[in-house]
Computed example of a mutant assay.
Amino acid sequence: MAGAGGLPAIPVALSSASVYPLAVHDAFALAQDLGYDGVEVMVTNNSVSQDPHQLSALSEHYELPILAIHAPTLLLTQQVWGRAWTKIEMSAAMAAEVGASTVVTHPPFRWQTGYAEEFPEGIARIATEYGVDIAVENMYPWKVRGREAKAYLPHWNPIPEPYERITWDFSHAAIAGMDSYEEIRTLGTRLAHVHLTDGTPNGRDEHLLPGQGQQRCAEALGHLAASAWDGVVAVEVSTRRAKGAGEREDWLAETLRFARKHLGH
């Protein structure tokens, strides 16, 4: 069944994070070659990822929609776009400009005082202003010498918080010891976006190919298809260990096949 714009009911996008350390244009090229339905752009230090005009040009050239923007709220992108609220607002503005319906963001870090306390109300206001979903991603506990360190405020788990829209990441769930299948079923309409990957509860953010870890990825995708979910599944796997472009392409093609099989495409 096709959705709006000729896309499948649940489109499968390629996250630009999946081609790291290659550039954004490589993500578009690979997505087109492999038959993905669109792209999720992670905003990084790469200038193209920050420029809506260049992103729109890539989208037009490769005939692939930009389905989500990942705000630069990682530790590695703390210097991108300055203050915390500026990151969220510029991401929302860029999403609206390039036609992406979703902005993915991480929960606030505990040292981001002011921003953290006002986060639920602030993202709701910005989402309304720009007409996009701002979907807060599930993270995981940080451990220092075997003990949990409080890295996020109020918490790494967005489910109990008053966020209207949530992004679910299977690798992060694995670290946290959570069952993605059960959590996705519980989230219902709060679930806006999915990062398809896998992991094991060994404390490392592995971003394995689905099926290589211990998460119930297949069951979760099957549930989304059966429940007529209207979000996007974005492939966010690590290909940094790939030996050349051929192996990276094979891994991303395999993940696309997995997604489409279990979504019933």
Rank of each mutant, 00 (worst) to 15 (best):
V39G: 06
P210R: 08
H25Q: 15
V233N: 13
T255K: 13
F258Q: 13
A13P: 03
A84C: 04
L209N: 12
V132R: 14
R190A: 01
G114V: 02
T186K: 15
I166L: 14
G246T: 15
T239E: 07
A95Q: 08
V24Y: 11
Y62N: 01
G131A: 05
A242F: 07
A253M: 07
L55S: 02
D33K: 13
Y140T: 04
S227E: 11
V80L: 05
Y181N: 10
A9K: 15
L55K: 08
H70F: 00
Y36C: 05
N46F: 04
E236L: 03
V19S: 09
A93Q: 13
L22R: 14
T77S: 15
S180Y: 07
E97N: 14
Y140P: 00
E121M: 06
V136R: 08
N138Y: 09
E254R: 15
Q112T: 03
Y163T: 04
V12D: 13
H262T: 14
I126V: 14
R257N: 10
E148D: 12
E236A: 07
R165N: 13
V39S: 07
A23I: 00
I66T: 00
L191M: 02
F109M: 13
Y152E: 00
T113L: 12
D198K: 07
A245G: 04
M90E: 14
A116C: 01
R190T: 06
V103L: 02
D33Q: 15
A220W: 05
A245N: 11
C217G: 06
Q54C: 01
G213R: 09
S171T: 04
K143A: 02
G38D: 10
L252I: 02
L14C: 00
L221N: 06
A253R: 15
E161K: 10
A71G: 01
P158M: 01
L74K: 15
G131V: 07
A220Q: 08
D198L: 08
E137S: 06
A84G: 01
Y181T: 00
V39W: 05
E164C: 02
E161A: 08
M178F: 08
A92R: 11
W142D: 00
S180R: 14
E118V: 04
H193Q: 14
E219H: 11
T186L: 13
G264A: 01
R204V: 12
E183N: 10
D230S: 15
A84Y: 10
A228G: 12
A151T: 10
L252T: 02
P154S: 06
L67V: 00
P107D: 09
R257F: 09
P141D: 11
V233A: 06
Q79I: 04
G244T: 09
